[in-house]
Design a protein around this nucleic acid. Structure first.
Lengths: 211, 211, 211, 211
DNA sequence: AATGAATGAGGGTTCATTCAT
DNA sequence: TATGAATGAACCCTCATTCAT
């Protein structure tokens, strides 16, 4: 209610987080991010309290706010982090393949492995749709962009049909995510390799019986 | 507005909601479900308060608990309802097609139409993953079950490869959902028909260039 | 962060408080106001917690927010209340006097009595300058307006100098308030009557020695 | 900007602040006091954080506690400083007048000028009533003491009525403060000179019409 | 069945102060 | 002296749920 003159611009823009200026700060910030990943992964965004995070990180409650503006801010930082980690888990495995179709198989396989190893925290990305839609959308647009890029290269190389594009890339992303949820999170009753092989055959030749 | 009446005996345990015994009760219960669909769709589960629902339904706060045990209970009822509505929107359109592949095209097209017409409330199903995982999983297992069923029939009819099965069905479900999110919710920059056509060609013959 | 369509106007304007619809509600709201007056008066706005108020009122914490939007809202309501009570304590006493100058004496005397009887809670009005400047200013502008009105009438009646006006009214208000603080709140080492008599002589004839 | 240096031995107990032993220390302490004056003036005591002060002063947060024991301590130091500054602004102007009544006019005029030039930070003194009552009371008792002293001298000189004393001094103080708030802070719609002239005529001869 | 007031645990955030460097 | 990270008690407010009418 009280409103008086303020002759200064409001500090710095509300970016995702404050940058540490000391080694200790860097350590603490990292500990908070790791703890948050575990807690959000285990209980979800809404059921996780700041105290859950700080307790796991081994710091006092107030310390949280030294490094993050809010619960949403750390969540957003985590989504970006996860997004990068998925990419880093997939990219190097693409080199294993020597064809456009094979690269998609390698990508799915790597993705399934990553999800299996990070079952809980992987879901952070999907929860972002309901917590921080921007970062969720940003993640998937980037991901699909990379798939589309690969498809285009496959087409240029004469391996894939000419008109493959964004629609096909979104379709592949959807396939991968659902297969990950079903076979890496819910019930791993098929080996990742087998799942990747079958899905890849669909990509390669479709479902129709050969005449 | 949204018709969430449930004319079938509920598949879920009767703890979810109480059955009305008067016409007035039926109206009130319906009003609450409609209001909840709109509010959950617009703001999401956690940002929606019981008062948002009762205000929109035009009843007093306490009345909510005459009809539903909890916020989760009404959400769960809505998910079941949405699930049925998606099915009811898709099933009749399958008859338009005269081949196994064509049926998947019809299914996707119908799904995209449904999502476009129910953009906000459709997302209730996806949010269920983080609010009420059981109903989310139940929805997708049922949905995928139906797809798998169709694929099996296509195989039996000699149209599809022999070994199509669950993996392919999950892949299709994922494709459909992501294409819905991208082209029916986020930015409808391609007509549903075109999206369905391209995705269906992928299913029919894969991505590889024909030799 | 999540921002979705909202097709309704935001309920009612944030007036000072919600109007009770039942007798019980009226009682509760009154109890909260009384408790708040006592607590704010004793500890000041910032040192008073909502729990101090609800504890004294004998209701649960959450009940506070059934009747008031915020701590500031109840404070504002109290200032308006106090303002009216001061006026109601002073106005009837004006009739005791039969001259313009005499009316100012009666007013000050009544004011001193009021402050003495309500030492603590009277200060709420002054604290408003730093908590809710609008209501503070509103109170004093109204008060001074009433004084100025009386002075004008005295001038019209030929009792006071022609040009008495707003400046004189503010001067009188200041006198009264400081005399109240000093002789009714801090140390009542002179009877109200004596204080009023001396201050009134100043108003009547000034300080200069008669030649 | 604001000069809050205190060149005199502090009248208050030495717990209020630590004395600098180096030139650098002196500069830092001064910077903190200046920053605090600006911030407290602009936002009030409670809305001002230590970080607001240190940020404006250009020092690190921890440095604050090198020079002041607490937020209250620096506030108290500021009140004492403001009190001295008001006095220093008024005292020399008394020499302009050659009568007891004239001295009160000069005092009010000087006070109005001071308040106009220091609108925001002047209010620190009044906020002290709710932050640090002792210093607030000390300020006004000193101020009123000086006024009473002048009145006594006027009486001794035969210019003022015999019995002028403390009551009249409090009345004058109240007048001055309210006129300052109204005509120097809120809306300067009359020149200080005119305000002082009218208020002084009230002091000189009262309000009654001359017969 | 419906109403609207009452409940109180819980949660996110602030901020004066302390401390290790 | 200065720095900036760390601390944790305190606080306001929300909201799902209960209850008396």
């Amino acid at each position: 209610m009280v409103d008086v003159a303020n002759d200064e611009p409001p500090a710095s823009p509300p970016t995702v987080a404050r940058a540490p200026r000391t080694a200790r700060g860097t350590r603490t910030r990292r500990a908070l991010l790791d703890a948050a990943a575990t807690e959000f992964g285990a209980r979800g965004f809404h059921a996780t309290g700041i105290t859950d995070i700080t307790r796991r990180a081994g710091v006092a409650l107030g310390t949280f706010y030294t490094w993050f503006d809010s619960k949403e801010a750390i969540f957003q930082a985590l989504v970006a982090d996860m997004s990068a980690r998925v990419r880093d888990a997939v990219t190097p495995r693409l080199a294993d393949a020597d064809s456009a179709i094979g690269r998609e198989r390698a990508a799915l396989h790597a993705f399934l492995d990553f999800v299996a190893e990070n079952q809980l925290i992987y879901r952070i990305i999907d929860e972002a749709e309901f917590v921080n839609p921007e970062s969720h959308r940003a993640h998937y647009e980037t991901t699909v962009g990379r798939i589309a890029q690969r498809l285009k290269e496959g087409a240029r190389a004469g391996e894939l049909r000419e008109e493959v594009g964004e629609v096909e890339a979104w379709a592949i992303a959807g396939m991968n995510v659902f297969l990950g949820l079903r076979y890496a999170v819910w019930s791993p009753d098929l080996p990742a390799e087998e799942v990747a092989r079958r899905a890849n055959r669909l990509l390669a030749e479709g479902l129709a019986r050969k005449r």
